[in-house]
C-alpha cells in the first residue's frame, strides 16, 4: 500500500516535470528562431542579372544574399585550360563541366572557402583567382590549386531565364 502510494506520487511529479519541460522548450524555440533569416530576407533570396553587355574575358560581380557572385564569360583558352586539368592534381576534384553547365559562363560565389575573403580576379599562379588574405590560388574554373583553402569556390544555384538574364538562387 505504502509502496503503491509512493509510485503514484512519483508518477505525478514526473508528469509535472515532463509537461513543464515541454513548455520551456516551446518557449525557447521562438527566442532562437527569431535570429534565423526573416520573411523579408527570404523573399530576396533570388536575384536576376542582365548579362547582355558582358564581353568574353570579362567578369562582373553582383551582390546576392549579401555576398559577391562572380559571373565570368570565359575565353576559349580559359575553358581549354580548365578542361585539361587532371583530376589527380586537384585538392577538391570536380570536373569543369560540372561547375560550368555552359562552359562559356562561370557563375560562382566569390568567397574564398578558407575564411571568407573575396579573391582577386585574374591573379595568382593559375590564371584564375587569388585570395589576398592567406594566399589561396584558384584556377580558371574557380578550383583551389594552392594555399590553405579546403575546397573549390562554391557554385550557387542559377539558371538562364532567357539568353541575356541569369537568375541566381
Amino acid at each position: 500500500m505504502a509502496e503503491k502510494k509512493t509510485k503514484r506520487r512519483d508518477f505525478l511529479f514526473t508528469a509535472t516535470y515532463a509537461v513543464g519541460a515541454v513548455g520551456v522548450g516551446a518557449v525557447v524555440w521562438p527566442m532562437i528562431d527569431q535570429m534565423n533569416p526573416d520573411a523579408s530576407v527570404k523573399a530576396l533570396a533570388s536575384t536576376e542579372v542582365d548579362v547582355s553587355s558582358l564581353n568574353r574575358g570579362k567578369t562582373i560581380t553582383v551582390l546576392w544574399r549579401g555576398k559577391p557572385v562572380f559571373i565570368r564569360r570565359r575565353t576559349q583558352e580559359e575553358i581549354a585550360e580548365a578542361k585539361s586539368v587532371k583530376m589527380e592534381e586537384l585538392k577538391h576534384p570536380e570536373k569543369d563541366e560540372d561547375r560550368a553547365k555552359d562552359p562559356e559562363w562561370l557563375v560562382m560565389l566569390g568567397v574564398c572557402t578558407h575564411l571568407g575573403c573575396v579573391p582577386l580576379d585574374q591573379k595568382g599562379d593559375y590564371n584564375g583567382w587569388f585570395c589576398p588574405c592567406h594566399g589561396s590560388h584558384y584556377d580558371t574554373s574557380g578550383r583551389i590549386r594552392k594555399g590553405p583553402a579546403p575546397t573549390n569556390m562554391e557554385i550557387p544555384e542559377y539558371k538562364f531565364v532567357d539568353a541575356n538574364t541569369i537568375k541566381i538562387g
Binding site: 505525478l12 511529479f13 508528469a15 509535472t16 509537461v19 513543464g20 515541454v22 513548455g23 516551446a26
Partner: peptide, 12 residues
C-alpha cells in the same frame, strides 16, 4: 497547455 500544467502542479 497552461491549464493542464496548472492542474498537475496543483496536485503536486
Amino acid at each position: 497547455y497552461l491549464i493542464i500544467l496548472t492542474i498537475l502542479v496543483y496536485f503536486s
